[in-house]
Design a protein around this nucleic acid. Structure first.
Length: 299
DNA sequence: AGCGGTCAAGTTGAT
DNA sequence: ATCAACTTGACCGCT
C-alpha cells in the first residue's frame, strides 16, 4: 500500500501554525517573551493534533512537521528548551499526546530541517548550528513518534568528494537518537541519487528518493533502478518525494512546484510498493486528496 | 481590513 | 553584484 504524505501546512483547511521572530521577542520583557512563546507552542501542539486528526479522517498516512513548531528554539540569543519553560511539562505532555495519537492511528510523521542545516559545510559554526538544529528536532521527534529527519547532503564547495567526506564524518557527531532518524535526499542541482546512495550506504543512513529532483538533475540511474536502490537502504517503510513542475518540463524553471501532481509524473512502478510518498505540491491537502483519487482509479 | 516590510541561519545558479 | 529558490508564508506595524 502507498501512504501519501502532506507537507507542513494546509491550503483550505483552517489549521494554522504560528511563529514569531527574534526581532519581536527582543522587544519584550523576559516574562512577556516567555508568555508569547508558550502561547504559540501551546497553539502549535493543538494544531499538530488537529493536523493528525485531519490526516486520519481523510486517509492521509503521513504528515511532515514544520521545523518551526517551536519557534526560535535553537536561536543563539532567544533559544530555549521546553523543559526550562514554566509550563514546559504541560507543553511536552501535549506533544506526547500527539505522538500517542499518531502511533495509535498509524500516522507517520517526519521532519525536514530547512536550508540552514548544512552538515557538510567547511565552516565549523555552520556545522555546529546544524547539529544543534537536528538535535532539537530529534527531541521533538521523540515526543511525537517521528522516525525521519530528512536533510540534503549540503554544498559542493568545488570538491564534492571532500564535501561528502566531511558529511560522513559529521554524521558521527550526532546523538544515536538523531542518527536513528537521519535520512539523506537527492537535490535538484548538486547531489544526484547515485552520489547520495554512496553516502547512505557508507554510513547506514536511509535514502529519501525525490523523483522530481532526479528529473531535474539526472545521473546514470533510471527511475526504476534508483527506486530499487533507495528501498534497499531502508530498515523500515521507505520514504519518497513527488512533485510536478509549475509550468511543465519544457519551461525555463521546471524545478518550481505546481499546485497539484500530474499523474503522468507519478512513476508507474511506485504503485505496487509499500512506501510513503510525501506530496510536495502547493495545493497541499487538496493535492494529496486529488492524487489519492487518481491512484485509486488507476488500480 | 488591507498592505508592505521583515524574518537567525547557507549555498547555488540565474539574471 | 544581486537575488530568488529551497520543505513552508506568517506576523507586525502602519495606514
Amino acid at each position: 500500500m502507498i501512504r501519501l504524505g502532506l507537507c507542513c501546512i494546509f491550503k483550505n483547511e483552517p489549521i494554522k501554525f504560528r511563529t514569531t521572530t527574534a526581532s519581536v521577542v527582543s522587544r519584550l520583557s523576559n516574562t512577556d517573551a516567555i508568555e508569547k512563546l508558550t502561547s504559540i507552542i501551546r497553539d502549535n501542539s493543538a494544531s499538530l493534533m488537529a493536523a493528525l486528526k485531519y490526516c486520519k479522517k481523510n486517509h492521509i498516512g503521513s504528515f511532515r512537521v514544520n521545523s518551526r513548531i517551536l519557534p526560535l528554539a535553537t536561536h543563539p540569543d532567544y533559544g530555549y528548551s521546553l523543559k526550562n519553560l514554566p509550563d514546559g511539562e504541560s507543553l511536552i505532555a501535549q506533544f506526547l499526546d500527539c505522538g500517542n495519537y499518531a502511533a495509535e492511528n498509524n500516522i507517520r510523521t517526519t521532519f525536514h530541517p530547512d536550508q540552514f542545516v548544512v552538515l557538510n559545510s567547511p565552516r565549523h559554526d555552520v556545522v555546529a548550528s546544524s547539529i544543534k538544529e537536528i538535535e532539537y528536532q530529534t527531541e521533538v521527534a521523540q515526543w511525537i513518534n517521528t522516525d525521519v529527519i530528512n536533510i540534503h547532503c549540503g554544498g559542493g564547495y568545488g570538491d564534492k568528494f571532500q564535501a561528502l567526506f566531511r558529511l560522513k564524518s559529521n554524521v558521527t557527531r550526532l546523538s544515536s537518537e538523531a542518527r536513528k532518524r537521519l535520512t539523506f535526499e537527492n537535490d535538484d542541482k548538486l547531489y544526484s541519487p547515485a552520489e547520495v546512495l554512496t553516502v547512505c550506504n557508507d554510513c547506514s543512513v536511509p535514502f529519501v528518493y525525490d523523483v522530481h529532483h532526479h528529473r531535474c538533475h539526472t545521473d546514470n540511474f533510471d527511475i526504476e533502478s534508483a527506486t530499487k536502490a533507495a528501498i534497499s537502504t531502508w530498515n523500515r517503510e521507505p520514504l519518497f518525494h513527488i512533485s510536478s513542475p509549475l509550468n511543465g518540463w519544457q519551461s525555463r524553471k521546471p524545478r518550481s512546484h505546481h499546485d497539484f501532481i500530474d499523474i503522468n509524473d507519478f512513476p508507474e512502478i511506485w504503485t505496487k510498493l509499500d512506501i510513503t510518498i510525501e506530496v510536495e505540491a502547493k495545493a497541499k491537502e487538496l493535492a494529496v486528496k486529488k492524487l489519492s483519487k487518481l491512484l485509486y482509479c488507476k488500480q
